[in-house]
Design a protein around this nucleic acid. Structure first.
Lengths: 181, 181
DNA sequence: CGCTGTTAGTTGTAGGTACAAGCATCGTTC
DNA sequence: GAACGATGCTTGTACCTACAACTAACAGCG
């Protein structure tokens, strides 16, 4: 797994139990990758948000919500399903959908099948908003991500991200791991 | 969505305003990589924050701040330098450092050289907090990221992230691109 | 039925971040 | 040496998210 080519301090990690068990520090390569990833985590979301807020008056998360709805049959999804497709918790989604409803982009109705459930449906205005926002967003994604990478790197990124998601969400409760085939 | 392989600019749009110029949609591979990256962007920060808040009563960003200070000569850095090392804007850093100062982890003093500038210095309590928080944090980073990847993937990740950062921050105003050598 | 536990969603609140001013200080120019 | 813009940082406000209750409805079981 981790390449130990050079001077790594071999710490005797015979610790008994708890959280304070010795953890091998990151070596130079790992540290470099990690610090750069952190920088991306810090900068990329803000960049995407800024573009969408400026050009379409919505958050990147808002965009994911309406975008997912626009691709769903009947432009409708149950809150739980929508939460999974957007990697969100239910409370967060609930707040966001309420705001989108206040803006007239989404409608909510109790599901006929299960009276606990709520169906969120994209309105015509909501669909128009997605159609309007999509080109600028795709452009931003290309500029800042896809076009910055070689086609091999795009493939590598897909696999790396998948490996991370398996750890972040082992049961796939949130993520779909989206594999369009 | 987006099956077409080539054939861009099929539409005679002829817009003078370049914002709405046609952008080629993402193909299946690109889309898969992108959606997975988005999921990571959504889940990883929260995971890191949760661990640090639970075990050390601080945000991941707080940790970066105190961690950077702990490695600086004299445990002191000018606000601007600290902002660059943490990929943060100055307003954000200002708020955070104020809170850290209220908790006694950091001290602020006007710089002797430039009376506009502020030097942030890690206190003894602050250093203790870093030392305390580090093992658990490193463990989390290993669990959720480093150990999820092969050593080739770690290397690939470093290069991919670097490529992205060049686009996200072309002038390196924020990121250092940290290359310990 | 009534009890228990799980699932689906909402809401309240506390806390962090972005954006936009604002206020000093410095440097340079004329 | 006064004026002008640039730099370094702070503050105020608005918004978004996380976490923790809380309600309502289903499902199984005696």
């Amino acid at each position: 797994m981790s390449g130990s080519e050079e001077g790594e301090e071999a710490v005797p990690d015979d610790v008994s139990d708890d959280v304070s068990a010795d953890v091998p520090w990151l070596d130079v390569r790992e540290m470099r990758a990690w610090l750069r990833l952190v920088a991306v985590l810090e900068l990329l979301p803000g960049t995407l948000d800024a573009q969408l807020r400026r050009d379409a008056a919505m958050t990147h998360f808002d965009y994911m919500v309406v975008s997912q709805l626009s691709e769903a049959p009947g432009r409708t999804l149950r809150m739980t399903a929508l939460a999974q497709r957007t990697n969100a918790t239910l409370p967060r989604l609930s707040h966001v959908v309420r705001r989108l409803e206040e803006r007239g982009l989404v409608e909510r109705a109790p599901s006929p099948e299960d009276r606990r459930a709520t169906d969120a449906r994209l309105t015509d205005a909501g669909l128009a908003a997605v159609v309007d926002a999509a080109p600028g967003h795709v452009r931003a994604v290309r500029e800042h991500v896809v076009d910055a990478l070689s086609s091999e790197q795009v493939e590598q990124l897909a696999e790396i991200a998948e490996a991370l998601l398996r750890r972040l969400d082992p049961d796939g409760r949130m993520t779909d791991l989206y594999d369009p085939a």
